[in-house]
Nucleic acid binder design. Sequence first.
DNA 1: TATGTAAGTTCGTTTTCTGAACTCAGTCTC
DNA 2: GAGACTGAGTTCAGAAAACGAACTTACATA
Lengths: 152, 152
Amino acid sequence: MRWSQIDAIPCPLAQAMSVIGDSWTLLILRDAMRGARKFDEFQQSTRASRAVISARLAHLVERGVMERVQYEAHPPRYEYRLTNRGLALQPVMMTMAHWAETHLPKPVRSAGRRHTTCGHKFRPVVTCSECGETVTPETVTFDRPPALAGSK
Amino acid sequence: MRWSQIDAIPCPLAQAMSVIGDSWTLLILRDAMRGARKFDEFQQSTRASRAVISARLAHLVERGVMERVQYEAHPPRYEYRLTNRGLALQPVMMTMAHWAETHLPKPVRSAGRRHTTCGHKFRPVVTCSECGETVTPETVTFDRPPALAGSK
DNA sequence: TATGTAAGTTCGTTTTCTGAACTCAGTCTC
DNA sequence: GAGACTGAGTTCAGAAAACGAACTTACATA
């Protein structure tokens, strides 16, 4: 199977990967969450090739994660903004960055996240929507244990 | 810049992507969390080419996310197991799958996660380690606002 | 001897990525 | 009004990676 057909797999994770699973895409989204909007900002910050940036932004627009907005008529200029769908990826990226900070050896300056509601620096913690307790890999089971073999 | 040099970028997200950002890698990890261990299980479930599975597993072992263990001496057979570092990706993947379930249009059967501690079906919720409240994109700021332009 | 199995590797072809240059529409400076 | 500049891309040739199928290795079983 081709990677380009990944969206045919009926699994939430595969669906997610079909949208954000390309190289550079997550770094583009990282920059968008930091406030980047213009083509050249994405290109200079990620240092991916312009062709890749172009293809990735188009894909993200097509999948509703970003939108292309004309912000100037003469000359015509466009910028890219996160949609709600794109903004909703923030917890995913925060969790992923936190994994890297705590589980990868290379020392990287942590992001210094602050929760404005309480004012504290914080770690993102994944909890159970029902009891509020921290969810660990050991305390999760699946009701319909997902079939392992790819469906024929 | 090449994707293969992505690990040179001093950003937690880039570091994470250098480990788990390749096509198929996250699906391999998904299967590993469901209990897959053998080469052919990963290949049949993901349906990626054997060469890709081989390269990805080797990369994951190199980066300490999985380990290659001989489980039979005659004939010599090896399997792949998640390390603690790999297991720690579970919250990341759960959060990502939940994003797909709630924010992507295509209807996919949700995973049916159950929290064994409280016994309920649940959604993963990202909360603040300090006050316990749900963290939304709007309530997070960064202390050292990450520089936008790539450092020269 | 023949068949099967698990874990890969190899190979020729197709697809994608890369970096640099180029385009386009319009503005700004001399 | 000529030439340089800007932002948002596209184009192109060469390099790298992915693809599927076949092959290999090392044994076990019939």
